[in-house]
Design a protein around this nucleic acid. Structure first.
Length: 302
DNA sequence: AAAGGATACAACCGCGAAGAT
DNA sequence: GATCTTCGCGGTTGTATCCTT
């Protein structure tokens, strides 16, 4: 029978997203919340598959995302969590507000792995490299002898020699089950043990004060305070949450230096008659998108 | 200045889990 | 319980940018 493709691939666009596509996606989700991803592209007027839309939203457009490099503190947390959880990036990400699994995975592969190796630590086992190498050799040798023994026994006797194999497998399976069972406990324990540093990536990510930029938005869609917002898990986004997230979301700390859509030159923005999401600041851009009417937006520059 | 290699990260792909029918 | 649909995860790839020669 086979699995149905996630979408009708004919005529669908792939590759980098354009500002226009982003705008459509944001507008749609702001207006309707995160409904069925499969249907979303058609409804939003996008030539993308639902999966692509979901990924774009969760990894890049979501308003509660942090941009910029991971702070030292975050990096340490990632390493600690990886030591306990392994490559369960989404679980790791759930402990780091504003960070996505993809971002953490990328950071791990490009930065942390190398760092650990330089420090003589095996990034997989988190043990000293020399020990790990010895262990691997031992394991390989043991595996070889086990295979040889199996082959031998299969050749010589009808009675299969399950003993060695089975006991090995059993041990492994038990460990896996235990690990899985411990997962949830572990999550709780970790939350108990690690307190979120309020001084998150202050150096890398600019905390933008809209007033400091000389920008005033008179729209009331922007929440007056972030007091009610929770900064717990960022990976689970129910449609309920999203449909009302404007009420209580924390505005993101955007990385101003890294604009995706050309420069941030104000003249340019005004000339285009359109502001891309990251162009001015979170408040004004989201304000525009919420209103869905650029010409009527009430942003004033001092 | 140009070419080639290295790096970083956004996006894609395939699979499994969970929920719906 | 079987089948189908949708979503989310983790691994991998593609490409833009940076760095070195």
């Amino acid at each position: 029978m086979g699995r149905q493709p996630c979408c009708d691939k004919v005529g669908l666009k792939k590759g980098p997203w354009t500002a226009e596509e982003d705008r459509k996606l944001i507008n749609f989700i702001l207006a309707n919340g995160q409904c069925c991803w499969r249907a979303l592209p058609k409804l939003a007027g996008l030539l993308r598959c639902g999966k692509s839309c979901r990924l774009r939203w969760t990894n890049y457009l979501r308003p509660d995302l942090k941009r910029g490099l991971l702070s030292e503190y975050e990096e340490k947390m990632v390493i600690d969590l990886h030591a306990q959880l392994g490559n369960r990036w989404s679980k790791i990400a759930s402990h780091l507000p504003g960070r996505t699994d993809n971002e953490i995975k990328n950071h791990w592969n490009t930065h942390i792995k190398k760092k650990l190796k330089k420090m003589g630590i095996d990034p997989v086992t988190h043990k000293p490299l020399s020990t790990v190498e010895d262990q691997k050799k031992q394991e390989q040798e043991q595996e070889k002898t086990t295979k040889d023994q199996n082959l031998e026994s299969q050749m010589t006797a009808r009675e299969p020699s399950y003993c060695l194999n089975n006991s090995n497998n059993l041990t492994e399976t038990t460990t896996e089950i235990q690990t899985a069972k411990q997962d949830d406990l572990l999550n709780d324990q970790f939350v108990m043990n690690v307190t979120i540093d309020p001084g998150f990536c202050v150096e890398e990510v600019l905390l933008v004060d809209p007033e400091g930029l000389g920008l005033v938005c008179s729209n009331s869609a922007v929440p007056s305070s972030s007091s009610s917002s929770s900064s717990s898990s960022t990976t689970s986004n129910s449609s309920q949450e999203s449909s009302c997230f404007l009420k209580d979301f924390q505005f993101p700390d955007f990385d101003w230096s890294a604009s995706d859509y050309g420069n941030n030159d104000m003249d340019n923005i005004m000339d285009n008659g359109m502001m891309s999401l990251w162009d001015v600041d979170a408040f004004s851009s989201w304000d525009l998108l919420v209103n869905d009417d650029i010409s009527q937006s009430s942003c004033t520059f001092w």
